[in-house]
């Protein structure tokens, strides 16, 4: 394996890490967000739309 091929592997590694981190965090946010939204809507509904 020559130097350039090795370099390319590092570049691929860098971009992969970037996408794994960013997409991982995105998935976490979306899941957490939809759970929180469901809970919130449920509580607003139970209170007949009234705020505490």
């Amino acid at each position: 394996m020559n130097v350039f091929e090795m370099d390319r592997n590092f570049v691929i590694a860098a971009y992969s890490v970037m996408w794994v981190v960013v997409l991982g965090y995105l998935v976490r946010l979306i899941r957490k967000g939809s759970r929180a939204r469901t809970d919130y809507d449920g509580m607003v509904g139970a209170n007949g739309g009234e705020k505490p």
Binding site: Y25, L26, D39, N47, P52
Partner: peptide, 22 residues
């Protein structure tokens, strides 16, 4: 990301308030 996270934080805070009021 910050907006989405802020939305979640606000929702969770509101849920806390509901639970406290209940």
């Amino acid at each position: 990301f910050i907006r989405k996270r802020y939305e979640i934080a606000r929702l969770e805070r509101a849920i806390e308030d509901f639970a406290q009021a209940a």
